[in-house]
Write a protein that binds this DNA or RNA. Structure first.
Lengths: 258, 258
DNA sequence: CCATCTTTGTGCACGCGTTCACAAAGACAT
DNA sequence: ATGTCTTTGTGAACGCGTGCACAAAGATGG
């Protein structure tokens, strides 16, 4: 039983590394843009620049899909768009349900990127009876009671959770029990799911905290450089503790707000 | 000039691996929950379960911060909350601006997780003059013209981009020019930023496509198993192409919708 | 004070992902 | 047909992250 695993580390799915799979959508987006501008072919160097990766990595990524390029010329844009779409499973339609139609859920329902690339919002689901029937993004919201029936009737295998943290695990359990095997989780909680179910999480708060870490480090380095490189690691730590209004070290700090 | 780099691969920030930094917010969340329940100490095993990771990894992660545990007992919850908060730079207040107050921007502004952990929404910015002055989440929206002044007056170093893709790079450039050095990008575009600026991206569409890949693979494996394990990789690919309504192989497919 | 038991902290090995560098392949001009 | 030039595809080396397994550390009970 995997607990909140973001990706499968064990078996490399059909030989395509997970890291490569994660980049394919990026390539696809860049290629689609080229296709719209009717660009016939593109070199690995150009496409890599457009996708924000390095060209060796891109070529290796494509090599896992097969040999779709022509040496001396590059890659056929249309053909590659199709190959990647097929590999990602976007040549078929994926019905998706969104559970939790608050601010975020509504934003997701309105997001254009959904419908445009193989995904179709099959239903919006919310626990609030007041919401039932109200249209959001042109789709009437349905009550949580209908969840199992909706999943079953529409053959939904992908669910999006945009509920408050407290409700997420329960919703997740019901989705899984009803047959959903892939979940995109926006709630700030670790979801526990049975084996065979994939969970990916999107967590605003975590991303911000990671940025804050780097931001602090940048500020620290700058201060260190200004102070004339005399500040040792110990001194820095002490200064930080002091700045936070604490004693020399080792005493219990004020509790962080929830 | 880094192009849309998500994290710095080169220098390991002050010895703490990037992978560890990305997990610290997870630990912090679990610890905060324990703190609220007034749990005094926790073992690596328990905390790891709560955070959805394995205990050896957690212990190794904490070892980068220092030796904060007590053998035979575990970790002091309050103390650890403080140490991680300090390491992540959450003991200080980070003013944040959100640019692009559409559905998503509004949802972000309303998101409680912002204010609660060291982040403060300093301003909401939108290009639409109609929006100016309207309060969203209790904060009046300001026009893009004010961007530079807002950044400067509030000492903002973290910016959130929730604009349409077309406007993202331009907004990014202005943010960076005004002094922002960390950007959280929700727009489906690769952002190009100068060295020293961190960019993290959150991309719904990409996450869904990754799930679709695994979903397709699961479906394929299932079909393979049912068919009696006689289906080879080649046969599988051919079947997929056929299901998509294509000829035997190698001919140019229909173009995907934008 | 000593023995036992729990739990941390970490050395080590392994595997994945990235990058380099180059040979093979094909287009294109002459 | 042949040579040149561009660009792909990949073998090999390296570094990071993960997980195992165990010794060291300290609490707890007698």
């Amino acid at each position: 039983m995997a607990t909140g695993r973001t990706h499968r580390p064990a078996t490399r799915s059909r030989g395509i590394p997970e890291a490569t799979v994660a980049r394919l959508p990026l390539y696809l987006r860049a290629l689609t843009a080229l296709s719209e501008r009717s660009v016939p072919t593109v070199s690995s160097e150009e496409l890599a620049a457009a996708a924000g990766v390095n060209s060796a990595k891109l070529r290796k990524d494509f090599s896992y899909l097969g040999s779709y390029g022509t040496r001396g010329v590059g890659y056929d844009v249309e053909y590659l768009v199709y190959q990647i779409s097929r590999e990602l499973g976007l040549t078929q339609d994926w019905p998706v349900v969104i559970v939790g139609i608050g601010n975020l859920g509504a934003a997701l329902a309105n997001y254009g990127g959904f419908a445009s690339r193989g995904f179709r919002v099959a239903a919006l689901i919310d626990a609030d009876p007041e919401m039932a029937g109200k249209p959001v993004a042109g789709i009437p919201v349905q009550h949580t009671d209908e969840l199992e029936k909706i999943i079953d009737d529409n053959g939904v295998s992908i669910g999006v959770i945009a509920t408050p943290a407290g409700a997420a695990q329960q919703v997740c359990d019901r989705l899984v029990a009803a047959g959903v095997t892939s979940i995109l989780n926006f709630a700030p909680t670790v979801l526990t799911v049975p084996d065979g179910v994939d969970v990916r999480k999107v967590d605003l708060s975590i991303e911000l905290q990671i940025l804050a870490f780097h931001e602090q480090r940048k500020a620290g380095e700058e201060a260190e450089a200004q102070a004339g490189a005399a500040m040792e690691a110990e001194a820095e730590a002490a200064a930080a503790a002091k700045a936070a209004g604490k004693g020399p070290d080792g005493d219990v700090p004020a509790v962080m707000p929830a």
